[in-house]
């Protein structure tokens, strides 16, 4: 029992980061029907920015906001250069565009920075823990969960209270109708990318703190977590994405500790297979945005 509670708490820490990533994926899917395989590259780019900043002697207090800024700027840049040109294209085109960007970004870093892993120092408190009864809680997880809660509240406020949020929710519900109602599609899509960039930036801070390094292929992992969590949550649904992220985090930790020996290394594969099974057996129930076609 203690172990389970321990697992759940560890899982929630992890899952919070996934939730932020997944929310970014869901926001983009909502406005563009794009499953963004390039989402993780925001963390690759900010990782290198962090590395450069550390090399010039910056501390985490300065690097953290830098990561957010770089992430937002990169998201907007990718939208401007690539995604704005394939708006409304077939899903085939959209998926391959984002897949291509994913590779392009990592290839550019291989070419100009090198394939080697670049390390930087993690903050001193990363491994500190405190205990509540028999349960050891990481300070890091506590910070992550607290920041995630604040971020989500802020996001909810933006979505509920601002015109942009209203437009975004309307666009996610039915883009064409939203446009007819006067929603400026350019602005909504750019705003969605900025929001997903900001969320990825905050997730990226923690991701990079934990990893303590970056590499050209560093984007694969966060991309997968974000996409998987968004898929669990039903893709278009933002609430679902957050829950999906938390579920994915907890599932990973629990599976890793419960699966026997060799199979534990298969955690990701198991999660992926489970998601595939969900899609096979409940394609309608899972994708809340797939409205029936009118004939």
């Amino acid at each position: 029992m203690t172990e389970l509670i321990q697992n759940v708490i560890d899982g929630l820490g992890r899952g919070s980061i996934y939730a932020l990533l997944a929310l970014g994926v869901a926001v983009i899917f909502g406005v563009m029907h794009l499953l963004n395989f390039a989402h993780g590259e925001l963390i690759t780019v900010s990782g290198y920015a962090a590395y450069a900043a550390f090399s010039s002697g910056w501390s985490w207090f300065l690097v953290a906001p830098l990561i957010i800024v770089v992430s937002i700027v990169s998201a907007l840049l990718i939208e401007r250069v690539a995604f704005s040109r394939v708006r409304g294209a077939s899903d085939f085109t959209l998926v391959l565009t984002s897949f291509g960007i994913h590779f392009l970004v990592s290839a550019v870093f291989v070419m100009y920075v090198g394939a080697r892993v670049k390390t930087f120092s993690e903050p001193g408190w990363i491994a500190d823990t405190y205990s509540i009864g028999p349960i050891a809680v990481e300070v890091f997880d506590t910070v992550v969960i607290a920041v995630t809660i604040v971020t989500l509240l802020a996001t909810v406020a933006i979505l509920q209270r601002t015109m942009f949020g209203l437009a975004l929710r309307a666009a996610a519900e039915d883009f064409d109708t939203a446009r007819l109602m006067g929603v400026n599609s350019d602005r909504v899509i750019r705003g969605a990318f900025a929001l997903s960039g900001a969320l990825a930036g905050i997730a990226g801070i923690f991701w990079l703190m934990r990893a303590g390094n970056t590499a050209p292929s560093a984007g694969i992992d966060p991309m997968l977590k974000g996409v998987l969590a968004a898929l669990i949550g039903g893709l278009g649904s933002m609430r679902g994405a957050v829950l999906g992220g938390l579920a994915l985090g907890v599932a990973e930790v629990v599976l890793r500790s419960q699966l026997p020996g060799e199979a534990a290394a298969l955690t990701e594969g198991v999660v992926f297979a489970l998601i595939a099974l969900l899609f096979i057996f409940r394609p309608q129930g899972l994708i809340s945005v797939a409205h029936a076609e009118r004939v």
Binding site: V86, I101, F103, V108, M111
Partner: peptide, 17 residues
């Protein structure tokens, strides 16, 4: 070095666009 991968990525994105 590393140009071939960049070319592949560019080809994918460019053709899709």
């Amino acid at each position: 070095e590393g140009l071939p991968r960049v070319v592949l990525g560019l080809a994918m994105v460019g053709f899709m666009i």
